[in-house]
């Protein structure tokens, strides 16, 4: 899952996956913008069947690859 998410971010931002570490802050680093976030929401829904509610849109859930993975796992377990 981690690599799938990392590859999605890398592909949609034309970056090499190696620059996106588990804890790279993808918004702070300017890797992702609004479009990236919307695309990521779609991706999580289609790939992992996880629907991000309005209240889920927090940096704690989307700020880095490791946070996104934790968010997906939490949602799947709920």
């Amino acid at each position: 899952m981690k690599d799938q998410i990392r590859n999605f971010i890398a592909e949609t931002t034309f970056n090499d996956p190696s620059i996106i570490k588990d804890d790279t802050l993808i918004f702070d680093e300017g890797i992702f913008d609004s479009m990236g976030l919307l695309g990521l929401i779609n991706f999580l829904e289609s790939e992992f069947n996880v629907v991000a509610e309005d209240s889920d849109l927090q940096e704690e859930n989307f700020g880095s690859v490791e946070r996104i993975v934790a968010f997906v796992l939490r949602k799947q377990a709920a």
Binding site: F27, D28, F32, D33, S34, G36, L37, L38, D54, L57, Q58, E59, F62, G63
Partner: peptide, 14 residues
């Protein structure tokens, strides 16, 4: 854009 996005440290969603 909901006002709360200004303090979220996330890019805004419309």
């Amino acid at each position: 854009i909901p006002e709360e996005f200004v303090n979220k440290n996330l890019p805004p969603v419309h």
